[in-house]
Deep mutational scan, measured.
Amino acid sequence: MGFKLLSKLLVYLTASIMAIASPLAFSVDSSGEYPTVSEIPVGEVRLYQIADGVWSHIATQSFDGAVYPSNGLIVRDGDELLLIDTAWGAKNTAALLAEIEKQIGLPVTRAVSTHFHDDRVGGVDVLRAAGVATYASPSTRRLAEVEGNEIPTHSLEGLSSSGDAVRFGPVELFYPGAAHSTDNLIVYVPSASVLYGGCAIYELSRTSAGNVADADLAEWPTSIERIQQHYPEAQFVIPGHGLPGGLDLLKHTTNVVKAHTNRSVVE
């Protein structure tokens, strides 16, 4: 069995187990497998329904001669939608809004960016022009300005110390501490036991640490421990890039980060 097929099978099995364990909360999309990078042309966006009122959005972007996937989250909030992270750029984010209108038909009224990198804030200006209120932590807003990236308009308070959590509509926002970046936030959907790890969490097929220019490698494993301790009931975990899975993604990420750190020390 090929690795790609095995990865998709694991996603399907995880979703099936969740649907059985929580039949009222989960209505997993039966329309197909989780979209992969090879299936999404740059400039297009796919939506994948995880649970009743919960979707991931998947886009792709060219970077350094390669094409990478990027995940975000959409959560229903009454007759409105909360968006977590842009679709990595203005063109993708405009396509995301169009796809949401086509498939869901509810307005996106608020959006949260989970850290300051372009795959999370690139497209904020498109959201703002569409009347979406954009939010991020003060740290993310400051770092985005320093980096020359787009800056969300509103500040999220109460997320300055490791372990801080605040309720934001249908989700809980959690600051686990520094990891992929010093400002990275985690998003949890309690009604569906869905954990969105953003770039602080890796997919299972990833074996290298990737972009760690703004990471705190020493603190990252401790931050992941905080996530595990705060959300032990999480059933569906979405990484910032690639295929979702279960809580095993947290341990896998820790292993990859520690291996990278150990290699760096040896070198």
Score class of each variant (00 low, 15 high):
residue 5 L to V: 15
residue 204 L to M: 13
residue 25 A to F: 12
residue 243 L to R: 14
residue 159 L to F: 07
residue 32 G to C: 07
residue 169 G to L: 04
residue 8 K to A: 14
residue 187 V to A: 12
residue 209 A to G: 07
residue 173 L to E: 02
residue 186 I to D: 00
residue 267 E to R: 11
residue 210 G to Y: 05
residue 77 D to T: 05
residue 193 S to C: 05
residue 141 R to E: 02
residue 3 F to I: 15
residue 67 V to D: 15
residue 27 S to Y: 10
residue 243 L to V: 15
residue 83 L to G: 01
residue 194 V to M: 07
residue 149 N to W: 05
residue 51 A to M: 07
residue 199 C to F: 03
residue 22 S to Q: 12
residue 218 A to F: 11
residue 123 G to D: 05
residue 141 R to V: 08
residue 120 R to L: 02
residue 64 D to S: 14
residue 227 I to W: 02
residue 5 L to D: 13
residue 107 P to T: 14
residue 253 T to P: 03
residue 197 G to W: 02
residue 177 G to H: 04
residue 85 D to T: 00
residue 122 G to A: 10
residue 251 K to N: 12
residue 184 N to K: 03
residue 46 R to S: 09
residue 29 D to I: 10
residue 201 I to W: 02
residue 133 A to T: 13
residue 48 Y to F: 13
residue 81 L to Y: 02
residue 140 T to P: 03
residue 117 H to F: 00
residue 49 Q to A: 11
residue 163 G to D: 06
residue 264 S to E: 14
residue 175 Y to L: 00
residue 180 H to C: 01
residue 155 S to C: 06
residue 15 A to F: 15
residue 156 L to I: 10
residue 224 I to D: 01
residue 15 A to N: 11
residue 114 T to N: 03
residue 124 V to K: 02
residue 58 I to K: 04
residue 134 T to R: 01
residue 109 T to M: 11
residue 258 K to Y: 09
residue 176 P to Q: 01
residue 41 P to E: 14
residue 45 V to P: 11
residue 131 G to V: 05
residue 196 Y to D: 03
residue 89 G to I: 02
residue 134 T to P: 01
residue 183 D to P: 01
residue 43 G to Q: 05
residue 217 L to Y: 04
residue 242 G to M: 02
residue 167 R to H: 11
residue 192 A to D: 06
residue 124 V to P: 03
residue 149 N to V: 09
residue 253 T to S: 06
residue 144 A to C: 14
residue 111 A to R: 03
residue 128 R to F: 08
residue 49 Q to M: 13
residue 105 G to A: 13
residue 143 L to E: 03
residue 185 L to I: 12
residue 7 S to C: 14
residue 75 V to S: 03
residue 25 A to Y: 13
residue 59 A to M: 05
residue 199 C to H: 03
residue 35 P to T: 08
residue 44 E to T: 13
residue 17 I to T: 12
residue 100 I to S: 03
residue 89 G to C: 01
residue 260 H to L: 08
residue 12 Y to F: 10
residue 127 L to H: 04
residue 150 E to H: 04
residue 51 A to R: 08
residue 55 W to T: 00
residue 178 A to E: 07
residue 198 G to A: 06
residue 158 G to V: 04
residue 1 M to E: 04
residue 105 G to T: 13
residue 44 E to V: 10
residue 134 T to M: 05
residue 68 Y to N: 08
residue 208 S to I: 12
residue 21 A to W: 10
residue 192 A to G: 10
residue 13 L to H: 14
residue 145 E to M: 14
residue 26 F to W: 15
residue 27 S to L: 11
residue 92 N to H: 03
residue 201 I to P: 02
residue 258 K to G: 11
residue 164 D to S: 14
residue 120 R to N: 03
residue 118 D to P: 07
residue 82 L to V: 09
residue 222 T to S: 13
residue 193 S to T: 09
residue 152 P to V: 02
residue 33 E to G: 12
residue 235 Q to L: 10
residue 252 H to A: 03
residue 154 H to N: 09
residue 86 T to M: 00
residue 169 G to S: 05
residue 14 T to W: 03
residue 196 Y to H: 07
residue 267 E to K: 13
residue 230 H to A: 15
residue 16 S to V: 13
residue 257 V to A: 04
residue 156 L to K: 03
residue 80 E to H: 09
residue 193 S to K: 14
residue 168 F to L: 08
residue 177 G to D: 06
residue 35 P to N: 06
residue 12 Y to W: 12
residue 200 A to M: 09
residue 142 R to K: 15
residue 8 K to W: 15
residue 91 K to M: 15
residue 132 V to R: 01
residue 117 H to C: 00
residue 28 V to N: 12
residue 68 Y to G: 06
residue 128 R to D: 11
residue 127 L to T: 01
residue 59 A to N: 11
residue 172 E to G: 03
residue 5 L to A: 14
residue 70 S to K: 02
residue 93 T to F: 02
residue 234 A to D: 01
residue 4 K to H: 05
residue 241 H to W: 00
residue 70 S to L: 02
residue 21 A to E: 15
residue 7 S to P: 11
residue 152 P to W: 00
residue 9 L to Q: 15
residue 16 S to N: 07
